[in-house]
Amino acid sequence: MVRTYALLMWTWTRAAAAYPASFALMTVLGVFVAAMDVGVILIIFANTTTLGGFSRDEVLFLYGTSAVAFTICDTFVSNIDRVSEHIKAGTLDTFLIRPVSAWIQLATDRFVANRLGRVLQAGAVLGYAVVALSLDWGRAWMIPVMVITGIVIFAALWTIAGAAQFVLTDAPEVVNTFTYGSSTLTQYPLSIYARDLVSGVTYVLPLAFVNWQPGLYVLGRDDPFGTPGFMRFLGPAAALVLALVAALAWRQGIRHYRSTGS
């Protein structure tokens, strides 16, 4: 499966090399857009010392963990949202006649390596925050767990969004709100949001487990919303449940594919 993925990724990279100017432009723009996210955080902290009770470096830590997971998914999974184009054009047919899962083929569909620049940028922010915060090393083991949990949660969200396209063929923008919106939401400490929203992203759509709950543990903070301590460790379980839901939704989506005339 990994080999097939890598092979398809390499194929699309070579195909993209047929249009070098576009490749260069997208790389530069991608890094520029990503840098703006950090710029916003720095501008906020030029005017205040805390945001929702968190210092600048703590916010950068939360941003960094979420952004690393999100940009990895954006590079390796997000192409799945092209499924709506393929459904409308009927080109999904050609994915379905090959002996490889449609999910892998779509995740690598027109893969572009230039998004890796954003992963590096996010990694640099996280690296800076970890060093600047002089974190308790006894708790730092949670950081890789957080990143992996985040990757699984975001990948599952993209898969669910893709599966929804089989039913809502005209609404790719609506489902983008969920994927890109989730990324934006988790870039800040959840303590800046209303309690109801935070309950929603804890118990319904488990975004709080991307970086907020485990992040509180790493930072040695209590939850301002007062959730019990064991919830800091529920991330992997929440990610697994969401991944199962995503797999079922995807399967149903494929079975509901209608193709086009001719």
Partner: peptide
């Protein structure tokens, strides 16, 4: 499908075949 190719648009034909060799093992 006569109306729709299953080949990779930007790749040389030979490379599409090579990829098919891998996908179909």
């Amino acid at each position: 499908f006569g109306q729709r190719t299953t080949l990779w648009w930007d790749l040389p034909l030979k490379d599409s075949f090579e990829l098919i060799r891998h996908l179909y093992r």
